[in-house]
Nucleic acid binder design. Structure first.
Lengths: 252, 252
DNA sequence: GTGGATTTTCTGCTATACAGAACAGCATGC
DNA sequence: GCATGCTGTTCTGTATAGCAGAAAATCCAC
């Protein structure tokens, strides 16, 4: 495994990648393992692991303090295997849902501490939310972001926001405790809502789209003008939203 | 996505990981994309990608010259999700096969340019091959290694052996052209054999264990004393070997 | 509470990562 | 076929980022 690098390759990057290969081969590594096997100082080993952890490529076990593969690596792998297909496979279900509800439907994925709108199907009414495909919004301010964040531990969520929770509107959650409570509620209810937290006048409700292993790959959201989001309309939308998300999962 | 790094994090490593996140989000990237979005020179972008490519984390499309996720990322992801389970799930099928054939059965995975024996079920005869679980042997000298290498392109195989093909016994394949021809034969036949190439007096035959997407996760091999490997016994073993590999795949 | 092992934090130093320039490759238009 | 523009790749001088070593913090077993 100790080979000469090609010219111009970056040694520190290579070391980080070798750590990921070690994790592939044995499931977990310790700082001292990395230090011994890469032939670097313990402090260097730690800095490499810390950087990998910062981007979610590794996660440290609280009890054993060993590092293992993090969520991001799983996502990349799954994306490479089938993720290019998620938009394609979700498309017809999103169009169905938009037609049923006459509201705009969005497909979102987590990107760092933001949610990227990766596809959309608009409702057919004059007043409607635009699809916003391509937009990156802070995850904690969107319904899709909330359901995806709810899949993480509280610590993982906090680590995504080292600078605190950005205020987007007057209604945005900016207290870490309030976000924890909101995500707890999301976990209990199985859906997340956005009450004008990302855009004034815009509400939304979202559920997760899961793969066969039950992992959340994306979020499916219905975005509505605020005045059209009532308890009644929410109750009407939820079964259809869940049905569409389940149908997408079956297609994956 | 532009956030401050934690203290002591390594900037160049972080940039490489951001590239992988870009690939997760959009499937592929170009040198200029990376340069523009990370705010680095094109030469730096290229060096980052070249390092990622060297370890198999990205692969460049020959025609479009864009870079996409490489094989290694898929392996790490799959290992993290389910790799710990493959041994458990394979266990009873391996025991069944060992009992049917009265020979030793091995489960192997690729590790760098070697094959790691990750589990084994021994035959019940006095003269038998031991399970060798935990052993790492050069991939080109084992039947399981051959079927796993046959899943790669010739270039990828050669890149795994920059120092050439190690000779393990007098029978080991050491010429790249001979290995290419052998792997072509493996692809045609759907199985690989080892005629005393890893250990004198030891023959073996192997097939791939695939996931639902058809990707090879591991190899399942039957290891036999050389004098017990005849055309007749090979013909008798193959259907049962294939059956067991298929049964493991179904359980994944 | 103590001692040892491991992980994490800090800092001065130097060599590696960087940007910019040149080169190479490719596609398109005239 | 040649010129142009764009993109990817190779090269080199430099300064700052990555490094090792030491100190501090944490953890666990006795």
């Amino acid at each position: 495994m100790l080979e000469s690098l090609p010219p111009y390759a970056i040694g520190s990057v290579d070391k980080a990648l070798l750590i990921l290969l070690m994790i592939r081969d044995r499931g977990e590594v310790r700082v001292t393992d990395v230090s011994d096997e890469l032939g670097v100082a313990r402090s260097t080993a730690h800095r490499l692991l810390l950087t990998l952890a910062h981007r979610g490529f590794v996660a440290q076990d609280r009890v054993s303090r060993a590092y293992r593969a993090g969520r991001v690596v799983v996502e990349i792998g799954l994306t490479a295997v089938g993720g290019l297909d998620i938009r394609r496979k979700a498309r017809r279900h999103m169009e169905w849902l938009a037609a049923e509800l006459h509201e705009t439907v969005n497909l979102l994925v987590l990107e760092g501490n933001g949610t990227r709108f990766i596809d959309g199907a608009e409702g057919d009414r004059p007043l409607r939310v635009s699809s916003r495909t391509g937009t990156l919004l802070p995850a904690h301010s969107t319904s899709g972001g909330k359901v995806l964040l709810a899949e993480l531990s509280d610590e993982e969520v906090l680590a995504l926001f080292p600078g605190g929770l950005t205020r987007v509107t007057d209604r945005t959650i900016t207290e870490p405790d309030a976000l924890s409570a909101e995500l707890r509620s999301v976990r209990d209810l199985g859906y997340g809502v956005n009450h004008e937290e990302s855009t004034p006048g815009l509400d939304a409700v979202a559920v997760c789209v899961r793969d066969h292993l039950g992992r959340a790959l994306a979020a499916l959201a219905v975005s509505v003008p605020h005045q059209r989001m009532t308890q009644g309309s929410l109750h009407m939308m939820l079964p259809l939203l869940r049905s569409a998300a389940e149908a997408i999962s079956q297609d994956l």
